[in-house]
C-alpha cells in the first residue's frame, strides 16, 4: 500500500490511526494505573471523591508520610505469605514446561519422521483440548484423585497440566520438525549414526527456536491456569493465581484490598518480562497455527 492518497483517503487514514491510538491507550492504561496505584493506600487507589488523589497520593502522604508506600507488597508477600505461593508456582510451571517439552520433542520428532498420517488426529486432539473448558475435565479428575489420595499435591497438578498441554505441544513441535529437511538427519544416518544419535547431534542443535516458542506457550498455560490449580491443590500447596482469588475472599473483608492489588501486580510482572524478551517468538507462535492452517 505505497500509494498514499490525498483528500478523502486521508480521512480514512486518520480514522484508522485514531482507532489504533485509542486501542493502545485501552490496552496499556489499566496496567499502568494498577501498577501506579499498587504503591498507594486504599483510599487513594479507590478514590471516589477525586481521581487525582490516586496520582498525587493525598491519603498515602497522610497515612504513611510519603507519596509511595510498599505496604501492600509487604502485606501480601510477608504477612499473607505470598512467597510460598510463588515458590509453588515456580515448581509447577518449571516442571510442566520441562516435562511437556521433553515428551513433545521426542514425540513430535517421531511423528514428523514416521510418515504416517497421524497429523490430522493430533490436530484434532489439540483442538478438542483447546475447545473443552478445563473445568469440565477437572470434575472428571477430582473424584478419582480423592479416592486414590493424591488430591491436593503438586505432582498431580503437574501431571494434569502436562497432559492438557501435550496435544498442543506435539502439534507445534511436529509441524516445526516437518520444516527441518529430512536430508539433514538422513545423511547423518547414512554416515553411520543411529536414529537417536542423528537426533542428538543433528536435530537438537537446530531445534531451539521451535522449542523456545512451544515452551513459551506451555509456560503461559501453566502460569495462567486457574480452573485446574484452584480445584486440584490444597490450601498449603496453592499457586499464585488461586491464592489471589483467595485474597479476594479474606482480605477484602479485612479492608486489605491493597494486598490483592500488590499480589496482582506481582503476578503480572513475570509476564511483562516475558513479552519484553520473547515478543517475536510469541507472535510467530500465535500465527504459526493460522498460517499453516
Amino acid at each position: 500500500m505505497q500509494h498514499k492518497g490525498k483528500g478523502g483517503k486521508s480521512i480514512l487514514r486518520v480514522l484508522a490511526m485514531s482507532l489504533v491510538a485509542l486501542w493502545l491507550v485501552i490496552a496499556a492504561f489499566p496496567f499502568l494505573w494498577t501498577i501506579w496505584g499498587s504503591f498507594k493506600v486504599e483510599a487513594d487507589f479507590f478514590s471516589k471523591a477525586d481521581w487525582a488523589n490516586a496520582i498525587y497520593g493525598i491519603y498515602t502522604i497522610r497515612e504513611t508520610g510519603g507519596p509511595f508506600t510498599g505496604n501492600g507488597y509487604f502485606g501480601a508477600w510477608i504477612q499473607e505469605e505470598f512467597w510460598r505461593n510463588s515458590l509453588n508456582t515456580l515448581i509447577v510451571v518449571s516442571f510442566t514446561v520441562v516435562i511437556s517439552l521433553t515428551f513433545g520433542t521426542l514425540g513430535g520428532y517421531a511423528l514428523a519422521r514416521s510418515g504416517f498420517r497421524y497429523a490430522f488426529w493430533i490436530l484434532m486432539a489439540a483442538l478438542v483440548f483447546r475447545a473443552m473448558p478445563h473445568i469440565t475435565l477437572v470434575s472428571g479428575y477430582m473424584l478419582p484423585f480423592f479416592e486414590w489420595n493424591i488430591w491436593g499435591i503438586l505432582p498431580t497438578t503437574i501431571i494434569v497440566l502436562v497432559a492438557i498441554n501435550q496435544p498442543f505441544t506435539l502439534w507445534m513441535l511436529h509441524s516445526f520438525f516437518l520444516n527441518i529437511p529430512k536430508d539433514l538427519d538422513e545423511s547423518a544416518m547414512v554416515d553411520g549414526c543411529t536414529r537417536f544419535e542423528a537426533f542428538r547431534h543433528v536435530i537438537v542443535p537446530v531445534m531451539w527456536p521451535g522449542v523456545i516458542t512451544t515452551g513459551l506457550f506451555s509456560f503461559l498455560l501453566a502460569y495462567n491456569d486457574f480452573a485446574i490449580t484452584t480445584m486440584l491443590l490444597s490450601e498449603e500447596n496453592e499457586t499464585i493465581i488461586p491464592a489471589i482469588a483467595g485474597f479476594l475472599g479474606t482480605t477484602q473483608v479485612e479492608g486489605n484490598v491493597m494486598f490483592a492489588v500488590a499480589a496482582v501486580v506481582s503476578a503480572t510482572a513475570p509476564l511483562f518480562v516475558l513479552v519484553l524478551f520473547f515478543q517475536r517468538q510469541i507472535v510467530s507462535g500465535l500465527t504459526a497455527g493460522a498460517v499453516k492452517g
Binding site: 493502545l24 496496567f31 489471589i244 482469588a245 496482582v264 509476564l271 519484553l276 515478543q279 510469541i282
Partner: peptide
C-alpha cells in the same frame, strides 16, 4: 508489545485489574 499484554495476562488477574 503493548497489544500483547491484555491477551497474555492471566485471565483472572486481567479481569481483576
Amino acid at each position: 508489545f503493548v497489544s500483547l499484554l491484555p491477551f497474555l495476562v492471566t485471565p483472572l488477574v486481567g479481569s481483576l485489574i
